[in-house]
Design a protein around this nucleic acid. Sequence first.
RNA 1: GCACCGUUCGUCUAGCGGUUAGGACCCCGCCCUUUCACGGCGGUAACACGGGUUCGAGUCCCGUACGGUGUACCA
Length: 479
Amino acid sequence: MSVRVRFAPSPTGFLHIGSLRTALYNYLFAKHHGGQVILRIEDTDRTRFVQGAMEEQIAMLEWAGVTFDEGPHVGGSYGPYIQSERFDLYREHAQALLANGTAYYAFDTAEELDAMRARQQAAGIAPRYDRSAMRNQYTLGDQETARLLADGAHHVIRLAVPLTRDVRYTDLVRGDVVVQGREIDDQILLKSDGFPTYHLANVVDDHLMAITHVIRAEEWLPSTPKHVLLYEAFGWTPPEFAHVPLLLNADRSKMSKRHGDVMVSDFRKRGYMPEALVNYVALCGWNPGTTEEFFTIGELTERFALDRVHKAGAVFDYRKLEWMNAEYLRKADAALLAEQLLPVLSERGYPFIDLDTVAATITLLRERVHFLADIADFGDYIFGDTLAALDADVEASLRANDALVQVCKGLVGTLDLSSSEAFKASVEQHAVAAGVKPGSLMKPLRMVLTHRDVGADLYTTLALIGKERCIARLASFAG
RNA sequence: GCACCGUUCGUCUAGCGGUUAGGACCCCGCCCUUUCACGGCGGUAACACGGGUUCGAGUCCCGUACGGUGUACCA
């Protein structure tokens, strides 16, 4: 049987970095086995729906290179792929459960349920739906239930969890998991508004869409027994489950907004390359078993296996991500990067610069920065005509350097940028005349010409700035 | 509280009974470079604790501690 996995986000906002990783693992696993990846939108909670969230999430996924074989945006033969368009299906299936006695009607109000929980809490017992004390099909009887239903009373449908047995399943990441039935709540399947809960919709859809492997985050682990029970109630074979570890904040809590950027769009905005983000995130919880750590998404697909997924959560290390982005920045094609940098440059008000110059600047400076856009700042003395203001003290000490002033003056007429050697020779000539070693002039010269004390090789930098602008800068300093 | 899951350097991790416990990020030192960075070399740093099992345990078992997740008519 062909592998079919699904990524099932709910359209309540932007795509979380953890969701990206879950989607990625699904994608890698399916593609590794030559299977299909399905996108399904779980919008059964009408109150949390956010307009445009689905499109945003798809866009971010595609930016990262995670694509789908089926989904609301590409179609497929198991649709519709949006749960709100499948409501009849859930109702029918809930009815089937009612008919075979694995589900029942309940009529409790929110207040009654709150009171129940308060009582349980006071008594020091676990809050769980008390089937024998609340207003439901069991306590009311079939006749009263039918009457209430006929009256149009608000009701829900709950799963009748068998109290006396264990529920067990094998998790592909964690191994065997056993939970006692009495620990599992009588989960609501169909809400009083007629909409299904996640639990029902998820099981029905996974079955109907022929999903073979459910790969999702660890937070779903505690509710998996309910799902296993649902498959049983329907008489279906459950899919394989794999619960992948969470991405964590530095304090080891579930990765969240308060501790830094968590939306994929944030990372994109900050200038991360998708290849770097995917590579890094893949390594949070999975490794190939070797010491290699650079992988394209294709290589990840080749190597990925669920049995090499780590069990414990991974603290998200922004610094290592940054390092990895820098690595990708150094290896990427300079011409391609130049095209990406061009709009940034014009946004910052630099005059039009030809692509080759931008590419050459990127090649020159990329190993000194972590992000492509940093080059726009770092290379301001190449891209712009005017230099950043000089610190007053620095300027004073520069002007106090007689030899430097003298050399700069001389260079105005004789600066030779035809080659590195020619440049050095022209500096040397004036340095000797001024009675100083040429080497001692390199730093101050850089200061005069770029207003920076650090940078790439001076000759190459100057060549990029161009003779004309260099001479103007020398003249403005020495003149 | 209860249930489930987890626990190797600060962080990501390798390890699947016998290792000087390896790699990467970070940090530090040296080299390269009259700058910065890259690069190269080297260094600091970990098996949560207690019992077993075994000739031998980071590796297997049981406890304890700590942490996380869940405990909704949210997903």
